[in-house]
Simulated assay, not measured.
Amino acid sequence: MGCKDCCGVCLQCLFGYETNVMLVINNKALGALFRLIQLLIISYVAVYVCWIQRAYQETDSVISSVSTKVKGNFLTNSSTEGVHVWDVPEYVVPPQGENSFFVVTNVILTPGQTQSKCPEIPSESTKCDSDSDCVAGHNDVHADGVQTGHCVQYSDTIKTCEVQAWCPLENDGVIPKPAILGAAEDFTVLVKNNIQYPKFNFKKRNILHHINSTYLKNCTFDRKTDPHCPIFRLGNMVKEAGEDFSVMALKGGIIGIFVDWNCDLDFPERFCIPKYSFSRLDNKNPENNVAPGYNFRYAKYFKNNENVETRTLIKAFGIRFDVIVFGKAGKFNIVPTIVNLGATLAFLSLVAAVCDWVMLTCTKDRDYYAKHKFIHADQKGDSMPLSSMETGSYGTP
């Protein structure tokens, strides 16, 4: 082939135009592969993209507010407090929480504390034999007060350093068992939850339209018989979280109340309802049980008959309930619908390319198929297979 012919072929390639030619091949394996890939793509789009992911919808995340109200009371009779009725202001501490509430289930009481001097609780760092073992003004973060520099009798056999503190000191070495407020499992809590999806101007609360005052006073949440009641028994929530309330009440813990507001707003508003579930959130791994449970201290202050400030120190063990609201709403929108239809068509267009590659690479008649797939047409209306172009002739090579 001369230089002139080469230039002609190059110009022909540069200014040529390619168009698809329909080539029907009677190959069952290739036809089955073509239909199988199409079926997989259509199934993926119909089942996963449209049904599961709802990719034809515009979505918005939930905005939520929560308030709670606990009810119940319990009577105890102990050597420290005597007969005592515990009501909501005493066992719900603090009275208002942000998306959470704490219920006292066990306590260690230290009544009648005043600002005075007393021997420290025995430990390796507080035991002493003489005043020289104690340092006046020494303040250890793990101690109960500031040392006075004196070594005093704690018991008949033990001496400890004297401290200036709230005396008598708390001794929390023994936790009451069973839990003093173990009957708290029968207490109930009303969870009021308001949600909105701003993008769709949609607002709702978990007290549904069919719930009236009479119903609310008598219902208790039950997953099978009354799944829409917003009043929960504490013992039932702990049980659904897979825990034993009597065991958890000893040292306390944290329970999550999960409120799921996933809604499909293409359906009527009445179908958008909350779903509740419960789980323990704090760590109870027996291999890592340092500082288990949940507890804190608070005090009740008053003046005694001698007008001396006095307090009752309370180390409260209990269960903190965290209300966790989550959800996503979707509604049909033409933009994501068009985007996903375009993606589907793009996937389907790749099926032919994949099958062409298999046909021209993996089949035994690949040379024959290639000869008929690529055809060149000149301006005179004549045509030839691509193999004839490669030989520079319009005839048989």
Rank of each mutant, 00 (worst) to 15 (best):
M1E: 07
L11K: 07
E18K: 08
G31S: 12
L33M: 12
V47L: 13
I52M: 05
Q53Y: 12
T76H: 03
N77Y: 14
G82L: 08
V83L: 14
W86Q: 02
E90S: 08
Q96N: 05
Q96K: 12
S100H: 11
F101N: 01
V107Y: 05
Q113M: 10
E120H: 15
D131W: 12
D133Y: 07
G137P: 02
G137R: 07
H138N: 07
H138F: 15
T148D: 05
D156C: 01
E185V: 06
K192W: 03
N201C: 04
F202P: 01
I207A: 04
N212P: 01
N218L: 11
F221E: 01
F221S: 00
C229W: 09
M237H: 04
A241C: 10
A241H: 10
A249I: 11
L265P: 03
D266T: 11
E269C: 01
R270E: 14
C272T: 09
D282F: 12
N283M: 11
Y294V: 07
N295R: 09
N305S: 12
E306C: 02
K315T: 02
I319S: 03
F321M: 03
A343Y: 11
A346E: 01
A352H: 13
W357F: 15
P385C: 08
S388Y: 09
M389K: 06
